[in-house]
Design a protein around this nucleic acid. Structure first.
Lengths: 147, 147
DNA sequence: TTATTTTGTTATCATTTGATAATTAAGAGG
DNA sequence: CCTCTTAATTATCAAATGATAACAAAATAA
């Protein structure tokens, strides 16, 4: 297979995405949550239900710290923890009702800020963008839970 | 304009990109650099030359802290600082030779890890992906330096 | 049964990062 | 000249995060 390298660089793309996302999410982040706590909420929102170990693995933070931060999130009534039935060591983690509401509101704001950036684009442009998002999502930024 | 919302959600895309990128850059990050310091290097690599104020603005960190961390980066011989000629208050910041080399090596590794994910794709797929990256870059994740 | 592994908790300490005030130096404008 | 603003530095303290050890409880294997 002739794998000549891309004319376009992933790194450029990633840095750009990262910068814009940072800028947009900046004034959307709720008060009273530390960055790490927000990261956890984000992860749980996208991968619910999950376990402490999985959280710890995927967010690259030691289990004791994950446990500590999750405890705080429970105290803030944003997360729920529940022992598994088949394996009672495992703690299954979900967002609470409050947590769901919070994250949905935040996601909605982010979504609308991005759509604002596209307000001068034609319907055709929007469709192209939509297709590009889908394509990259399925072909590149898929997550293989096998590793 | 009929701005019906996208079938595909930006937030899903962003979270996915963020997770994959995190995973891929994790074992690429150099020893002896704190996360913030790496973030600074990344920014400088992409926006060189820049100033302390700009760094502070874009990375959402207070100027004194930016100054402190940059000083450490200078001590590690990864950044250079130079007073402006027209306005001698401004400090223009670039990567040093070492810094350039370090970041290029890291970017290269990230790049190749992404290409690894695509090793089973056809040439046609790769072209489509390349086009999608370009499209999103120019239409969505462009940075307007005007704000 | 006993030993071992997995999952998570609690406690503790070091490091990193955030936040703020005080200060210096240079430019802008009166 | 003097005042005001901007860019950056230094110092300091609080808060968040990282890292590690010791422990407990449930599953698994011997």
């Amino acid at each position: 297979m002739d794998k000549k390298h891309f004319p376009y660089k992933f790194v450029d793309f990633l840095i750009s995405v990262h910068q814009i996302t940072d800028k947009i999410t900046k004034d959307v982040k709720p008060e009273g949550l530390t960055p790490v706590q927000f990261k956890i909420l984000e992860y749980v929102a996208a991968n619910s239900p999950t376990t402490l170990s999985q959280l710890s693995d995927c967010l690259h933070m030691p289990l004791p710290n994950t446990s500590r931060e999750l405890k705080k999130l429970e105290e803030k009534k944003l997360c729920k923890k529940e022992s598994g039935v088949e394996d009672r060591r495992k703690q299954y983690i979900c967002l609470s009702e409050n947590g769901e509401a919070l994250m949905q509101e935040i996601f909605k704001k982010v979504e609308s800020k991005f759509l604002d950036r596209l307000k001068d684009d034609s319907q055709k442009d929007l469709e192209e963008i939509d297709n590009a998002l889908k394509l990259l999502y399925t072909k590149v930024f898929y997550s293989n839970h096998t590793t």
